[in-house]
Design a protein around this nucleic acid. Structure first.
Lengths: 153, 153
DNA sequence: CACGAGTAACTTGTGCACAAGTTACTTTGG
DNA sequence: CCAAAGTAACTTGTGCACAAGTTACTCGTG
C-alpha cells in the first residue's frame, strides 16, 4: 500500500469509496422509482411521507433536521405534495414563523399502498440482514464523521 | 424482530438502509464541496476529471458506462468543463456518431492541485482502512444487485 | 414599549439526474 | 446499392440539492 506508483495513488474511480457511495445511492433510488411511480411519488417525496406516517405532523424545520434537507429543497417538494392532495401546510398559531405539515385523509390512506415496498427493496438488495445492518451502521458513522469534521454543521 | 407492531414494520426513517445511503452520499459530497470549490469543480465534474486523468481520453458513451450517468447529465456537464478550458470534445474520425473527450493542458495540470483531496476526505471519513474497504465492497455488491434485479439495465 | 438579534420560511439561480423524444451516423441484410 | 435496425449524442422538461439573499415573525434587553 505504502509507496504506490503516484499515478495509482488515487486509484481508479472504482476504488474510490465516495464513488461507490454515490453510485449505490443512485442505484437504490432507481430501484424505488418504478414502485413509487405507481403511487405518483418521487423518492424524496416518499421519505417525507414516511416521516409523516410516523409522526403525524411536523414543522418544515424539524422535517429538514430529520432528512438533512434545506428549505430550498423542501418548500417546493411540499407544495407538490400539497397540490397532489397528500399533505396540508399551515402556519402554527403559537408561532407564526413555523409551518406545520400534516397528512390529508388521502395521504394517510396512501400508506397501505406502500406496505410491499420495503420487502421488494430488501429483496432487490439481496444481502443478508446482518450485512445490511452493518452497512447501515457504517453509513451512519460515516455521515456523522464527515458532517461534524467538515463545516461544523 | 418477528411479530413487531405493524406500525413499526417500516421502522423510523433512521432505520432505513436506503436513507442512510442517501444521507451519507450527500454528506460525503458536501465534504468534497469546499475542497472542489477552490478548483471551480463540482463533485460530478471531479469524477469526470478523475476518469480522464486515468484514461487520457474517452468517448461520452464509455464515460457514461463508467460513471453510470446518461447523456442528459453528461452532455451539459462536459460543455461546462469545455467552457472552463479543462476538456476538449470532438467527433471521432472513424465513427462520426461518437464524441471523444480529452484533456487540455490546463485540465492535465489541474491534477496536481487535487493531490491533497483523497487524503483530506479519508481523514474526514475517520474510519479504519479495513472498514472502508468492507464498506466499499458492500456498496458495490448492493449496486450490482439492485441494478440487475431491478429493470435489467 | 422599542429595537436589535435570532429564527423559520420562502425565493432565485445553478447544476445535477433522469425520462422521453429527436437527429445523425453506422451496420446489416436483401 | 438501399432500406431497416441499431447506436451515439443531443434536447427538452421535471424534480431534486444547495447557496445566497429576502421577508416576516419572536424574543431578549434596556
Amino acid at each position: 500500500m505504502v509507496g504506490m506508483d503516484p499515478d495509482e495513488a488515487v486509484s481508479t474511480i472504482d476504488d474510490m469509496v465516495c464513488f461507490a457511495l454515490y453510485a449505490a445511492s443512485r442505484a437504490v433510488t432507481s430501484a424505488y422509482r418504478p414502485l413509487l411511480q405507481a403511487l405518483n411519488l418521487t423518492y424524496p417525496q416518499y421519505l417525507v411521507m414516511v416521516v409523516l406516517w410516523q409522526r403525524g405532523s411536523i414543522t418544515v424545520k424539524d422535517l429538514g433536521d430529520h432528512l438533512q434537507l434545506d428549505y430550498g429543497t423542501l418548500t417546493p417538494l411540499l407544495k407538490r405534495l400539497e397540490a397532489a392532495g397528500l399533505v396540508t401546510r399551515r402556519r402554527r398559531a403559537d408561532d407564526e414563523r413555523s409551518v406545520e405539515v400534516g397528512l390529508t385523509d388521502e395521504g394517510r390512506e396512501l400508506r397501505e399502498s406502500t406496505r410491499h415496498i420495503p420487502i421488494a427493496i430488501g429483496d432487490a438488495m439481496g444481502m443478508p440482514e446482518a450485512e445490511l445492518s452493518r452497512l447501515r451502521d457504517s453509513l451512519r458513522r460515516l455521515t456523522n464523521n464527515v458532517s461534524t469534521h467538515g463545516s461544523g454543521a
